[in-house]
Write a protein that binds this DNA or RNA. Structure first.
Lengths: 186, 186
DNA sequence: GTCTATACTTTGATAGAC
DNA sequence: GTCTATCAAAGTATAGAC
């Protein structure tokens, strides 16, 4: 019976490499090399590369959920939480070597709608929007869904442009989010 | 000397396939098959697949420039042009089988900064922002660059979410753009 | 008995030769 | 325009280390 520890180590290495270089650019051999594990071990934990990619996407989605939960715990004001989320997204989007949102990047790498990686990425993006709408429902906004969708648009734009245009994009996105929250709150 | 007609035919076929399935998923053989051209012909016009991808990106960028020029000619109001651009982006983003913005999708497929496809995509995205800022400079906005960047954010969010959430996203983006233009114009 | 290391097979890609 | 070289990838099997 294989140790669950190894699974985490493999998935951690895969996550790091996929995040930096993309899924297609990283072969299983490279993961095996950098992980110091045998090929058999990887294939006992993940039946195929697709399986590994799906696990990677689940981990990314869990990271987003954890971020939302953290913001919810740390920030008392419902309106402030939305802005804080944009700020946190900005930090991630402008890190050196960032490729933006991992879910969206993987979606672009697997355009076929029936591919497991594509389906899982879409599934988690739908869930991310639902999470945002939950947050927005706690504000005093007249149309919380609209507020949530606009914040999501800002985050997506940030993930798209942050890696290209840098820190200014992140600051501008936070200001944009503040203006939107203000406008929608009355 | 190769006929320029053939080059267009090859590039047209490549554009169609790359747009639908992504660059990595389309082999040169498939382009050759659907184009009814020999392998030699393709290699006389494009030295490598990378060359073909770069030409594809240039064509996408030219399409965007043409769209901006068309909106400029058709719509007299500088403010209205920005909204119209969002509307046109929405049409493209929600077409069946759309993968969003081709430049961004290709960027995700080629994450290495030194890769020609990556460099060209970034180059054209920088230019796209500059074009938007030119349009915004003609409005009465207090801070035209800020208005332009916010419209770009909305367009990017639309390209990201339109393929997933469909028509409603496009309508919401237009309304969002109208609100932003109104807010920035005073 | 679980893990490492490696050799092998198959497949599909770019690229070039004829 | 077909045919071939080369290479890298996924996946499988096998041999051996602790």
């Amino acid at each position: 019976m294989p140790t669950p520890d190894a699974r985490e180590r493999i998935l951690g290495t895969a996550t790091r490499l996929f995040d930096r270089h993309g899924v297609h650019a990283v072969g299983l051999q490279r993961i095996i090399d950098e992980c110091d594990c045998g090929k058999n071990l990887l294939y006992t934990h993940f039946a195929s590369k697709d399986d590994l990619v799906v696990a990677y996407l689940r981990r990314c989605a869990a990271g987003w959920d954890a971020l939302v939960a953290g913001v919810r715990a740390a920030s008392p004001s419902p309106e402030g939480r939305l802005v804080e989320l944009v700020r946190e997204a900005g930090v991630r989007a402008t890190e050196p070597g960032s490729r933006g949102c991992a879910l969206r990047a993987t979606l672009a790498e697997f355009p076929e709608p029936r591919h497991p990686a594509h389906r899982v990425a879409v599934e988690y993006l739908v869930r991310a929007r639902a999470r945002l709408r939950e947050l927005a429902a706690e504000t005093s906004a007249a149309d919380p869904d609209r507020l949530a969708d606009r914040i999501m648009t800002i985050i997506d734009g940030l993930y798209a442009n942050g890696p290209i245009f840098g820190d200014d994009t992140a600051k501008a996105a936070v200001a944009f989010a503040e203006d939107v929250v203000r406008a929608e709150s009355r």
